[in-house]
Amino acid sequence: MPYAHRPLILDADTHMMEHADWLPAFADPDIRPRLVPFAGKDARVRALAADAVARAEARRGDATLRAEAEAEFMSMKFKGWHGLGAFDAAERRRANDLMGFGAYLVFPTEAFNQVIAASDPEVLAGGIRALNRGLADFCAEDRRMGGVGYLRLADGPDSALAQVETISSLGLPYPDAAVVIRYEGPRGGPGMRETHRISEVVAHMNALGSDFILITDGRYSGASNGFIIGYLAPEAAEPGAPLALIENGDEIIVHVSQNRLDLNVPADILAERAARFRPPVVDALPDFPYLARYRRLVGPVDRGAII
Results as ranks from 00 to 15, higher is better:
A50Q: 08
K77V: 09
A86C: 11
G85A: 11
R66I: 09
K77G: 08
A86E: 06
K79V: 15
F87R: 12
L10T: 06
R44I: 02
L35V: 07
M16H: 15
D11Y: 03
A25F: 13
L23S: 11
R66G: 06
A63R: 12
A86M: 09
D51M: 05
E68M: 10
R6A: 07
D51C: 00
I9E: 01
A69V: 08
L23C: 12
L23W: 10
R44M: 01
M17N: 04
P24V: 13
R34K: 12
A50G: 01
G80W: 13
A71H: 06
L84M: 10
T64D: 14
R44S: 02
W81L: 03
M74R: 13
A12R: 06
A47Y: 04
I9K: 10
V53G: 01
L65E: 01
A52K: 03
A52N: 02
A20W: 13
A39P: 03
P7N: 00
G85L: 08
L35F: 07
G40T: 05
G80M: 04
V53Y: 10
H82C: 04
E18N: 10
R59T: 01
L35R: 09
F73W: 15
A86H: 10
P24A: 13
F78A: 12
A86P: 14
A52R: 00
A20L: 09
A47P: 02
A86N: 11
P37K: 08
F87S: 06
S75C: 09
A67C: 03
D11Q: 03
F38D: 01
A63V: 05
E72L: 08
K41Y: 00
R32P: 08
T64W: 08
P7K: 00
G80Y: 15
F26L: 14
A39D: 00
G61T: 12
G40F: 03
G83W: 02
L35P: 03
A71S: 13
